[in-house]
Design a protein around this nucleic acid. Structure first.
Length: 345
DNA sequence: AATCCGGGGCC
DNA sequence: GGCCCAGGATT
């Protein structure tokens, strides 16, 4: 048997029953693919269910406020996906009468849709022979064919895309694409792949060279930078606090947070108190400062490690901010959400 | 071609 | 602590 026959045969027996596999409606496939970018099925599943329930059609999503979309996306990360999701929904609903483009080339023009997602939608919804290359495909193909070109390079991207395109079953691209990803996700896993029961055991170059753990080859990522975040949790005499929206570039764009002071190193109590006496928010106000978490909360992102302190700033005066009861309505980074849940305003 | 962008899970 | 995940946009 050749590659695609072995693969699809394996898939017919081992495929999981996932909610987006019961449809080929472009809206649902697109929604699932955006959610699943750099996100495992287990993590994305509840978000998919929530979005489908809240926004059953592309028009419902298009008519929502971005704040509503971001709140539903809260905790999933890579928030540009949510902003692009909403922008594309508005474009499809308003400019295309709710009908998604039907070709790879046209799909690629949508915000938040790159080579992978355009290939996935084109194949699953429109039966186009466009091969997907995601993290699973890199792993499966690099092992089976013994390809040591680093996957996170332009050369690697081109090589694996070409190989996948060569291997795809043009009579059933939807099944082939989903099969190779499913195989990578559940069988040919990064750690402890189930080689003894693998249908490619006789063919797999990496296995037969005893080099499974060396594939795929990937150039090392840069080490995460340390940052020191100090959030100011204001408590006013009229039971209000302050949340600010993060605008501009950088992490957590358009999400809300407590007023943030970033410092070069970990801040002690006296230094923070002195700094706050000169701070715009607290000018000419008396306050009582306390540190909520003596040990820093270390929040790890891909490229940053955030050493975080939450400072409680109790005022004896009133402010024009957000009522304690409304704090949970705002989309916030999960780091902030965990504090809000624990602090219990 | 490099870098940025989350958060959870695994080892 | 390092690595991975149904990647895309920006510089």
């Amino acid at each position: 048997m050749i590659f695609n026959e072995i693969l699809i045969s394996w898939y017919s027996v081992n495929k999981r029953d996932l909610p987006w596999r019961n449809t080929s409606e472009p809206y649902y496939i697109w929604l699932s693919e955006i959610i699943l970018q750099q996100t495992q099925v287990k993590q994305g599943m509840p978000y998919y269910e929530a979005f489908v329930a809240e926004f059953p059609s592309v028009f419902d999503l298009a008519n929502a406020d971005e704040s509503h979309v971001l709140k539903l996306w809260q905790g999933l990360g890579y928030y540009s996906r949510a902003r692009n999701l909403h922008a594309t929904a508005k474009y499809v609903a308003n400019e295309l009468n709710g009908k998604f483009p039907g070709t790879y080339k046209e799909l690629l023009k949508l915000k938040g849709v790159g080579d992978y997602t355009a290939s996935a939608i084109a194949s699953i919804c429109f039966n186009a022979p466009t091969a997907v290359v995601d993290g699973n495909v890199y792993r499966v193909l690099s092992r089976v064919f013994g390809i040591d070109t680093p996957i996170n390079t332009t050369a690697g991207n081109k090589e694996f895309k070409a190989l996948a395109q060569e291997l795809i079953d043009v009579k059933n691209p939807a099944n082939f694409n989903q099969a190779i990803m499913e195989f990578g996700a559940t069988h040919c896993t990064p750690k402890n792949p189930d080689c003894p029961t693998c249908p490619f055991i006789n063919k797999c170059v990496a296995y037969n060279d005893r080099k499974i753990s060396l594939y795929p080859v990937k150039l090392k990522a840069n080490k995460a930078k340390r940052k020191f975040f100090n959030f100011l949790v204001l408590l006013s005499s009229n039971n209000q606090t302050i949340l600010e929206q993060r605008l501009g570039k950088g992490i957590w764009q358009n999400l809300y947070q407590f007023p943030l002071i970033e410092t070069k190193s970990s801040m002690g109590f006296n230094d923070m108190e002195a700094l706050l006496k000169r701070h715009d928010l607290l000018r000419n106000r008396s306050f009582e400062l306390s540190l909520y978490n003596r040990d820093e909360v270390i929040h790890k992102l891909s490229h940053q490690h955030l050493y975080t302190k939450f400072w409680i700033v109790k005022l004896d005066s009133s402010i024009n901010g957000i009522d304690y009861n409304d704090v949970k309505q705002y989309a916030v980074p999960i780091l902030i959400d965990k504090f809000i849940e624990a602090f219990n305003f």
